[in-house]
């Protein structure tokens, strides 16, 4: 980059890079610094340096470990189901029909809705006494389910709401990728003797792989950070059965006022997320320049 020094646009981007770098490095260092103390709002002014105690405490904390496991489970399920479902819908919708524009507009609705509205809507739907979900089950002659009140089920109920809200996002992005993909190779495969599923598997999906990988990454990152639906629908309950690591960090900070421990959780979550996503990234994009 010999020309970078003489490029006049550097006067625009260099100050911004410096500001952003200073802000993020300073904040990160500050957060790490606090996480090495025992700052608690219950004992303000009496904090002292405790080294890695908060981190050691995390790995010995069964509630934190359970929350970590729930985060992994929720993220994996949400990403996999949303991608698979979205892809299936896209392949199904990949033909010209009269209401295509209308369908596409309707798909935007769940994405645009605020999480509060989505969460409340699904809470009403899942209400054991008056909710639509149990009404439908009763129509089908099935027994009633306590969707959000059962520790075994609650996480999956939130998962359903998340899938409902974010599958359309997958559909929109994959649909856009599909429309910009050339159609001649698909026809070539048909002439070459491929059945429709072989056309999809050998030609279409590899062409969509990049788009799918990016959507999967976005959804995985969002799922790890998911907070709003949990807050509205279950508040981590019942019996902590829907408490993800993100939510546990929130509880530690704003219910228990255990600031240092909450920040240690946040840093662990960040490291864990980065490692997981970088692994995912290197699996999905094996070689540089792959297109």
């Amino acid at each position: 980059m010999a020309t970078a020094a003489s490029d006049p646009t550097r006067h625009f981007f260099q100050p911004i890079i410096v500001c952003l770098t200073v802000a993020s490095v300073a904040l990160t260092l500050f957060v790490i610094w606090i996480s090495l103390h025992d700052l608690s709002l219950m004992r303000a002014g009496r904090e002292k340096f405790v080294g890695l105690d908060n981190y050691l405490r995390f790995f010995g904390d069964p509630r934190a470990m359970a929350a970590l496991w729930r985060t992994v489970l929720f993220t994996t399920l949400a990403t996999v189901v949303e991608i698979a479902l979205g892809l299936a819908v896209v392949l199904f919708l990949d033909r010209d029909f009269a209401m295509k524009r209308l369908v596409r507009t309707l798909l935007l609705v769940p994405i645009i809705m605020t999480p509060v509205v989505v969460g409340l809507t699904w809470r009403f739907l899942f209400d054991p006494a008056t909710g639509m979900a149990n009404y439908l089950l009763s129509l089908a002659g099935l027994s009633q389910v306590d969707w959000l009140g059962s520790p075994q089920l609650a996480l999956y109920s939130v998962l359903i709401a998340d899938i409902w809200q974010w599958t359309p996002f997958v559909i929109l992005l994959v649909m856009a990728a599909l429309e910009s993909a050339p159609t001649d190779p698909l026809n070539a495969a048909r002439v070459d003797g491929a059945r429709e599923w072989q056309v999809a598997w050998y030609v279409l999906l590899p062409m969509l792989r990049r788009a799918l990988a990016i959507v999967a990454l976005i959804r995985a990152i969002d799922s790890i950070k998911a907070f709003d639906l949990f807050y509205i629908m279950t508040r981590g309950g019942p019996a902590l059965s829907t408490e993800t690591l993100n939510y546990y960090g929130y509880i530690a900070a704003f219910t228990n006022f255990d600031i240092s421990y909450a920040l240690a959780i946040a840093i662990i979550l960040t490291i864990f997320t980065n490692v997981a996503l970088l692994t995912m990234y290197s699996v999905l994009f094996p070689k540089s320049g792959e297109r």
Binding site: P182, D184, P185, N187, A188, A189, P206, M207, R209
Partner: peptide
């Protein structure tokens, strides 16, 4: 095909 229609991957 005119566009060659090779399988890009």
């Amino acid at each position: 095909f005119q566009s060659y229609a090779l399988y890009p991957t």
